[in-house]
Design a protein around this nucleic acid. Structure first.
Length: 829
RNA sequence: GCCGGAGUGGCGGAACUGGCAUACGCGAUCGACUCAAAAUCGAUUGCCCUUGCGGGCUUGUGGGUUCGAAUCCCACCUCCGGCACCA
């Protein structure tokens, strides 16, 4: 008998699936479209093709494929496409180092991913394959940019960016590690440059509200996005500076502490700052301070235990609630990007203001009483951030601060000194990159017309071939003079192309829509296709994308819905984030030398083993440590299933099992139905693959235990055959090749065309149950009892047990608890 | 500091609604097969006491609710992830 040889089996079925295009599905209106089936869009995050796939990819696509297979066999029409996020920095950095064009390295990597996806047996609809670096794709990325531009959602403005002085280039945020340039280690500087932005902040509230539209997302991902958006409700309050007759509005979430404001602080970047001190004795010191802060990196400035610094301005503003004049300062703990770049400082109730006040000897005033009245009297317990009755607040004294909150705002508003306001932590999305390997931003600059969008019919603006990829302080594209020089689409005069390219997150913010109609040359997608397939029913990927990619894609979806080219508000109804696989307890990295190459394991044990192993390691949402012993354990299990198949094929007859069989035949059939029930529940409850696989292992173990007896009779043989074919059917989503092969041999037919098996309820119940007998809650005996026995019968059986009797000796039963079919607990004293 | 997640054998992990803790896998020990090894098959495997029968203890710690708690409640400890001077 031949042993389990995955290579031959896997090649055979991969050939079938490729030849027959098994996993391709049609769109509505196309031939082959089945309108009776409900749809399911199963999607894993598309890979960034760099080098070879790693184990993280294996896990992601193994998990997604299991879901896709399960849904298909549940009767869904499943769309399960694949593509490549093929623009990006690593390919470009490689080009700078080696001179190899990014396109060449990228396409080589894509070929490697394609080959491995086929070797893994992932059920992909290859007719919908895409790569974001192809003109056929980025043409539509550019088209979407133009739509956003027309709607005012894409705009150009000056903004501070990270600048590496050594490489003379702007860096993407991801390229700044601990305040230093990732490549040369030079400390980065902030520079103001004209940049393109997407107005994601317009969607802040909808991004928050529409969490309600999601079916199932991990709670922590929603929380992370909510924190990232950082919506704060409060008030804008105006402080007036008489000396220069200027209003300084501030944003505060605590208008109830207004009476406690004892000073006022401006951010070093505040536009009115220098005007305030011009010609005063403070001018020199303020200028020095601002310059010093300006030289510091964001990292230094935001350091956790940094001491408060600042300079008095020699000016004051009037607190609108009580007319008090309070001194003004400049300090770097106030950020220009948030609120108005100015704050009222309430040292009694804010720890940062408190620190500053301590250092500069400023008054600290309590205006909210804490729970301990002693403290209030002594001025202890400050800063206090809790709630309580107000004090030192004029007409509001004695009132609870939460109640006074709105009253204060309303009072200020009536006098025009304030109003309710909302602030967000979220900033607009900076999308321009001074980089070569990305989608060109489709605009031109004309002397006469200014910024002119490239007309849609002239798309794509193709990325030109260039010689030198090294950044020279502007995009390497600027060197492609022939390409840059163009004419204005509006007036025909000489004009210059935008040389920045788009952030690659733009490419990946809409790819799930292109899959729906990937070969469409007239439009990014057809609305009938998106109306049918959207939203994605199950999205799968790493939690590292919890904020950026997932929020950008949500923003795009809403913007595209507003443009009326899409009919959904949320792209991903259900999200699953898989945990990271480690090796020896540490994150895999080339420098640590602890990487695992999926290809090696597929070569040695077969794709089925590798796939099943990553699904069996533990709950897929949690991480897991890769061990070779674990892989071998799974390989051993699949080999056992294989040998069982070979043996059953010769020693049993084809045919239906006898549902009325008794004895061990019934025992094995019951186990098979138990496994069906267990695996189905594990799939339906989410991603409990590890326990689904263990149920199949139990079934195979039982078949081994019972088979030699069962081969003796026809109904026994039929039970073994059924159990083995069932194991194949249930393991198919994880080990599709072996599942197909075993199923075909024992049951005939193609397992993926079979409906997912259903457990026979008659075989899930048994005549007897194991009755657990406890005395005072402690387990004392287990008794086989008739399943339908009444309570009195169970109590009688329990009392008759010798083991139980020993513990009842000389004691009085004060209570009897009976859980029918399960347990009896006798309480004695 | 704030937010989120998790603590169960030697290890990865199971346990539906409060009802047999440790399924399944790894590792380990023993046995069968073999000249031998590998592979395979079978048995044992939470800890402590006991020759055995049996008994006691055990789900991060301490308390509570309950006939009964890994599961519910309170307090605490540890680890992991995210954000972090956001007014």
């Amino acid at each position: 008998m031949a042993g389990y040889e995955p290579k031959a089996i896997e090649r055979k079925w991969q050939q079938v699936w490729a030849d027959e295009e098994t996993w391709e599905v049609a769109n509505p209106g196309q031939p082959g479209f089945d309108e009776r089936k409900p749809k399911a869009y199963v999607l894993e995050m598309l890979p960034y093709p760099s080098g070879e796939p790693h184990v993280g990819h294996l896990k992601c696509y193994a998990v997604g494929d299991a879901i896709a297979h399960f849904r298909r066999r549940q009767g869904f029409q499943v769309i399960h496409p694949m593509g490549y996020d093929s623009f990006g920095l690593p390919a470009e950095n490689n080009a700078i180092k080696t001179g190899e064009p990014p396109r060449v390295a990228t396409e080589r990597s894509i070929a490697s991913f394609q080959r491995q996806f086929r070797e893994w047996g992932i059920s992909i609809d290859w007719s919908r394959e895409l790569a974001t670096h192809t003109p056929e794709y980025y043409r539509w990325t550019q088209w979407i940019f133009l739509q956003l531009f027309e709607k005012g959602l894409a705009y150009r403005t000056e903004a501070p960016v990270q600048w590496c002085p050594k490489d003379a280039t702007v860096l993407a945020n991801e390229q700044v590690v601990d305040g230093r340039c990732e490549r040369c280690g030079t400390e980065v500087e902030q520079k103001n440059l004209e940049q393109w932005f997407f107005r994601i902040t317009d969607y802040a509230d909808r991004l928050l509200e529409d969490f309600d539209l999601l079916e199932s997302w991990p709670e922590h991902v929603i929380t992370m996005q909510r924190n990232w958006i950082g919506r704060s409700e409060g008030a804008e309050v105006v402080f007036h500076c008489e000396e220069v007759d200027l209003d300084f509005p501030v944003f505060t979430t605590r208008p109830d502490t207004l009476f406690g404001a004892t000073f006022f602080v401006l951010a070093p970047e505040h536009p009115e700052l220098m005007r305030l001190v011009a010609g005063t004795p403070a001018e020199e010191e303020v200028r020095e301070y601002v310059n010093r802060v300006g030289r510091e990196s964001a990292e230094e400035r935001g350091a956790e235990d940094r001491e408060k610094t600042g300079v008095p301005l020699g000016r004051s503003v009037v607190n609108p609630v009580n007319g008090e004049e309070i001194p003004m300062f400049v300090a770097d703990y106030v950020l220009m990007e948030y609120g108005t770049g100015a704050i009222m400082a309430v040292p009694g109730h804010d720890s940062r203001d408190y620190e500053f006040a301590q250092k500069f000897g400023l008054p600290i005033k309590r205006v909210i009483e804490g729970s301990d009245p002693e403290e209030a009297r002594d001025g202890e317990g400050l800063p206090y951030s809790g709630d309580g009755p107000m004090t030192g607040s004029g007409r509001f004294d004695g009132k609870h601060n939460r109640e006074a909150y709105e009253e204060i705002v309303a009072w200020l508003e009536a006098d025009g000194r304030g109003r309710p306001a909302v602030n967000y932590r979220l900033r607009d999305w900076l999308v321009s990159r001074q980089r070569y390997w990305g989608a060109p931003i489709p605009v031109v600059y004309c002397e006469g017309c200014g910024i002119v969008p490239v007309p849609a019919e002239q798309l794509p603006v193709e990325l030109p071939e260039i010689e030198d990829y090294a950044p020279q302080g502007k995009s390497p594209l600027a060197a492609a003079e022939d390409w840059v020089a163009t004419e204005c689409p509006r007036c025909g005069a000489a004009a210059r192309r935008e040389t920045d390219t788009m952030d690659t997150f733009v490419d990946s913010s809409w790819y799930f829509l292109r899959y729906l109609d990937a070969r469409n040359a007239e439009a990014p997608w057809d609305r009938t296709a998106s109306d049918y397939w959207m939203p994605v029913d199950q999205y799968i990927g790493g939690v590292e994308h919890a904020i950026l990619h997932l929020m950008y894609a949500r923003f795009f979806t809403k913007a595209l819905a507003d443009l009326d080219v899409l009919g959904v508000q949320e792209p991903f109804a259900n999200l699953f984030t898989q945990g990271m696989i480690t090796r020896d307890g540490a994150k895999m990295s080339k420098s640590k030398g602890n990487t695992v190459s999926p290809g090696d394991y597929v070569e040695r044990y077969g794709a089925d083993t590798a796939r099943t192993y990553v699904c069996f390691m533990g709950p897929p949402e949690r991480g897991g440590d890769w061990t070779d012993e674990g892989v071998e354990g799974v390989n051993r299990f699949l080999s056992r299933l294989w040998r069982l198949c070979e043996e059953a094929e010769t020693r049993t007859e084809a045919g239906e099992p006898d549902a009325a069989a008794g004895g061990q035949a019934r025992e094995l059939l019951a186990k098979a139905h138990w496994a069906i029930e267990k695996a189905t529940r594990d799939f339906q409850r989410g991603f409990q693959f590890n326990t689904a696989i263990s149920a199949v292992m139990e079934l195979v173990n039982d078949a081994y235990r019972l088979k030699n007896e069962l081969y003796g009779t026809p109904e026994g043989g039929a039970a073994v055959r059924f159990a083995t074919a069932t194991a194949a059917s249930l393991i198919f989503p994880f080990a599709p090749h072996l599942g197909s092969e075993v199923y075909e041999r024992l049951a005939g037919g193609r397992v993926w065309e079979q409906p997912w098996p259903e457990a026979d309820p008659a075989l899930l119940v048994s005549d007897t149950v194991t009755l657990v007998v406890q005395v005072n809650g402690k387990l004392r005996d287990r008794i086989e009892a008739p399943a339908e026995a009444p309570e009195e019968e169970l109590l009688r059986l329990a009392r008759e047990s010798e083991k139980v009797a020993r513990h009842l000796d000389g004691q009085q039963i004060v209570k009897e608890i009976v859980v029918p079919g399960k347990l009896v607990n006798l309480v004695v004293r």
